[in-house]
């Protein structure tokens, strides 16, 4: 079973994503960017296949997590779907330019997200 790490500071968002994905994936959630980065550092042998990464998080934003991940080859295989706010074209462009595999705008459609995850993970 593929594993997914959800990094979002919004508790309801984490709950919703976990609920929608738990039947098909091994899901772990973290509360912000810093926890996400710490999780990746602490689990080098058990890295997730995909991260759903919110952009706007306190402490360490999604962009900064992405930047840090790009500095190390061991994260190269992790696919990343960024969560952006609706209509923020700059966010989408920056996320894709920073190495994100795909993006989803909030509010999101769960079925669309699952389709994107399936496409990304193959």
């Amino acid at each position: 079973m593929n594993s997914i790490l959800i990094a979002d500071d919004d508790k309801e968002m984490r709950e919703l994503l976990r609920f929608k994905l738990q039947s098909g994936y091994e899901v772990t959630t973290v509360n912000d960017g810093k926890e996400c980065w710490n999780y990746l550092k602490a689990n080098p042998d058990n890295l997730p296949d995909l991260i759903i990464l919110d952009i706007m998080m306190p402490g360490l934003s999604g962009y900064r997590v992405l930047d840090r991940m790009q500095d190390s080859e061991r994260f190269d295989q992790i696919q990343i779907i960024m969560l952006t706010s609706r209509g923020k074209e700059d966010d989408i462009v920056r996320a894709l330019e920073s190495g994100a595999t795909d993006y989803m705008s909030k509010p999101f459609s769960a079925n669309e997200l699952i389709a994107r995850i399936k496409r990304v993970l193959g």
């Binding site: 919004d10 309801e12 919703l16 509010p107 999101f108 459609s109 769960a110 079925n111 669309e112």
Partner: peptide, 12 residues
């Protein structure tokens, strides 16, 4: 109300 702010599509 919390979920309707965050979700679209069939679930909404």
């Amino acid at each position: 109300e919390e979920y309707l702010q965050r979700i679209q599509g069939r679930d909404r």
